[in-house]
Write a protein that binds this DNA or RNA. Structure first.
Length: 463
DNA sequence: GGTAAACTTAACAAT
DNA sequence: ATTGTTCCAGTTTACC
């Protein structure tokens, strides 16, 4: 299957793959952690990596190769999903992969058992949330969040800075707990790092082999965390079972992962070149697979109130809203299509669900409101992050007033939807890289996390 | 018309 | 302080 011609990059890549294969075959362990680095003095906390990890329980290693690399046309009969074929770009890192469950102890990059307390706290957290819920009857208990955020009070305490993973952070989420302030960050190597805000310890795991595209805490069971990856896998980190279980294994890269509040058994994920798939845990397979876009879907976001409405953003230059009740049926059309001049990196509903914010490489943030999102505001914003910085994605704060997005000068721009402009930039000498991915803590107004291509996480808090 | 190459960008390690 | 490496995005340009 020797390719006729190789670019310099491809040649190097194949060389890397070959070396990886040799090493993996020889050691039967995951790739060794990158060396611990010296950080800018602003950053005091970091993960620690075990200097050398002896091979522990041996897990089966499977040589994972796409049909294409085996010389079989991807659309031929060999494929199990004959009904739908997504002519997606060739999947990345499709060489060696562990396809079964991975014990957390094997994926853990710290010293043996030093994550014991962390695992137990996750399990304890989920039990606590459960009992509180039982005591208070039903989901009705959900504390109503006060929305009056005083922008001037946002503060970056140097204590609230840490390097949570090595390398570029591609995804980051707050744990949705009222008690514990914790973030989980995923990077381009397939690592997931956990950090209790303000504390010094980092817990770093390596459950995937490629960039992490989704992190999803189960709201009513915080010890269960879904992760999706460019390697085509969805895993479920289960702290009780102490494994990263394998949930879904597809041929295509997965670019986004989401879940509507009222469908705890279903996962919606962006697969291949424009596909949106629905995984149903009750039947253990995908219940739907639709081709919604002409290029990859970058985000999937459900309307907070009307959970059958979902917004997708795509590199095909559009964002769309869809009605899940009619999607895939005879009327396979979007409710609305929001057009940009370049690829669209995100489309998020505001907390009330009344507005939608899109971010595009055409250097605009689109803010749509009105009865059917037909009113459009366009705010200029430099979104040319280039190749090494994860693309910007404007996120909503805790009400419909403010949108937060990183800028190329290591700041965080705050866009007011009322004033239709950037009204403030959060800056700090402690920030040593461009914060490109964000999450707002839904359980605490004013707690905003920004993540960089250097693996740092910065947490602003409202005093 | 289609594909390959080139260009942009910042962070960090090594020198 | 400077240089080299990263390399899985997105887009434009060059070249069959």
């Amino acid at each position: 299957m020797a390719p006729q011609k190789l670019t310099e990059y491809e040649r190097k890549r194949l060389e890397n793959i070959r070396r990886n294969n040799e090493m993996m075959a020889a050691l039967k362990v995951h790739t060794k952690a990158t060396e611990l680095s010296i950080l800018p003095k602003a950053v005091t906390k970091s993960y620690s990596v075990k200097s050398e990890k002896k091979p522990k329980t041996e897990t089966p290693i499977v040589i994972r190769r796409s049909l294409r690399t085996r010389g079989i046309p991807p659309d031929s009969k060999g494929s199990d999903s004959s009904t739908l074929t997504r002519n997606s770009p060739q999947k990345i890192n499709d060489f060696v992969q562990n396809l079964g469950p991975i014990p957390m102890k094997d994926a853990y990059k710290g010293d043996d058992d030093s994550d014991r307390s962390f695992i137990e706290s996750l399990v304890g957290m989920s039990n606590k949330e459960f009992s509180e819920e039982e005591l208070n009857g039903s989901a009705k208990k959900k504390k109503k969040i006060e929305c009056s955020l005083e922008l001037e009070s946002l503060n970056l305490d140097p204590e609230n800075i840490a390097r949570v993973v090595p390398g570029r952070i591609t995804q980051m989420r707050f744990c949705p707990s009222n008690d514990v302030k914790m973030v989980a960050a995923g990077n381009k190597f397939g690592d997931i790092g956990f950090w209790n805000v303000g504390e010094s310890e980092i817990f770093l795991y390596h459950p995937h082999q490629a960039p992490i595209s989704g992190i999803l805490f189960q709201p009513h069971c915080l010890s269960k965390i879904y992760t999706s990856c460019y390697d085509g896998l969805i895993r479920l980190m289960d702290a009780e079972k102490e494994i990263f279980d394998m949930v879904y294994n597809g041929e295509n890269s997965i670019y986004a992962l989401s879940q509507p509040k009222n469908e705890v058994n279903c996962l919606y994920f962006a697969e291949g070149s424009g596909g949106l798939s629905v995984w149903d845990n009750r039947i253990g397979k995908c219940s739907s697979q639709w081709d919604l876009h002409e290029s990859r879907i970058n985000t999937i976001d459900f309307s907070p109130q009307t959970t059958h409405i979902v917004a997708t953003s795509s590199s095909d230059g559009t964002a769309c809203t869809w009605d899940l009740r009619s999607i895939g049926g005879p009327k396979h059309t979007s409710l609305r299509t929001f057009t940009h001049k370049r690829s669209v990196q995100s489309a998020y509903f505001s907390p009330s669900g009344c507005s939608l914010a899109t971010t595009s490489l055409d250097n605009t943030i689109g803010i749509y409101g009105g009865v059917n999102l037909e009113d459009k505001i366009s705010v200029y914003h430099d979104n040319q992050t280039g190749r090494w910085i994860s693309t910007f994605r404007a996120i909503w704060g805790w009400d419909n007033s403010y949108i937060f997005i990183g800028n190329m000068k290591r700041g965080v721009d705050v866009v007011s939807t009322v004033q239709r402009a950037t009204i403030k930039t959060l800056q700090s000498p402690h920030i040593s890289a461009i914060p490109c991915r964000f999450d707002a803590n839904s359980c605490e107004v004013g707690m905003l996390a920004g993540a960089t291509s250097g693996g740092q996480v910065y947490i602003w808090t409202s005093s």
